[in-house]
């Protein structure tokens, strides 16, 4: 009788542990997907030409948004899959569309801009962190960027993702050195976003 109770207790414990493990795994799975939104009805393969609007700059670094936008444009074009409208043409399209806030257009404005520059969709973005961050004596470069894709026909957001790259790691805390150069960190962040777009 005692052994039966003990066996039941052990099997219960096993069940609880298994359930906990499953829960933690599923939690991880959900966490891994939360930074990407993808419209399941959108045919991303139909996108041939896109425009990249100026990014919103929430950092204290002047022109950081333009620098990141330029890297994003170059890397996107370098994939060979999408043609990116030059920044000068986008600026002309924004003026012609009369967009009040070029970095955060409304659906109507997004449609107008796409029509003006003959693009299938447009990217908007927000730069939340760019530059050196400090913690105690350690410092490193970091970037936090989120990007959205708005479809040209309807002005809907069909894809959205964010990324965080750089920051102070164990190596920086122990050995110092200031982390990786900002250009490298930016390129990594942009490549991470592009990977999320194409996967």
């Amino acid at each position: 009788m005692t052994s039966l109770t003990r066996r039941t207790g052990t099997s219960r414990l096993k069940h609880v542990l298994l359930a906990a493990a499953l829960l933690s795994l599923s939690a991880c799975a959900v966490l891994g997907k939360t930074d990407v939104y993808r419209d399941s009805n959108m045919d991303f393969g139909s996108l041939r030409t896109v425009a990249v609007l100026p990014f919103t700059n929430l950092t204290k670094e002047q022109q950081a948004n333009d620098r990141v936008r330029d890297v994003f444009t170059s890397e996107l074009m370098a994939t060979g899959g999408i043609y990116v409208v030059p920044a000068g043409e986008v600026a002309r399209g924004i003026v012609a569309a009369g967009a009040g806030s070029p970095s955060t257009p409304t659906s109507e404005e997004a449609m107008k801009i796409c029509k003006n520059v003959k693009a299938d969709a447009l990217f908007t973005g927000t730069l939340r962190e760019y530059g050196e961050i400090r913690s105690g004596t350690a410092s490193a470069n970091a970037i936090v960027l989120s990007v959205q894709l708005m479809e040209g026909q309807t002005g809907r957001v069909v894809w959205s993702a964010d990324t965080t790259q750089g920051g102070i790691g164990l190596k920086d805390r122990l050995l110092g050195g200031g982390g990786q150069p900002l250009n490298i960190v930016t390129q990594k962040a942009v490549n991470d976003l592009i990977k999320k777009l194409f996967e």
Partner: peptide, 10 residues
């Protein structure tokens, strides 16, 4: 006048 670079029209 080039705004943020050259456009197709330019």
């Amino acid at each position: 006048v080039m705004r943020e670079g050259i456009s197709t029209r330019d």
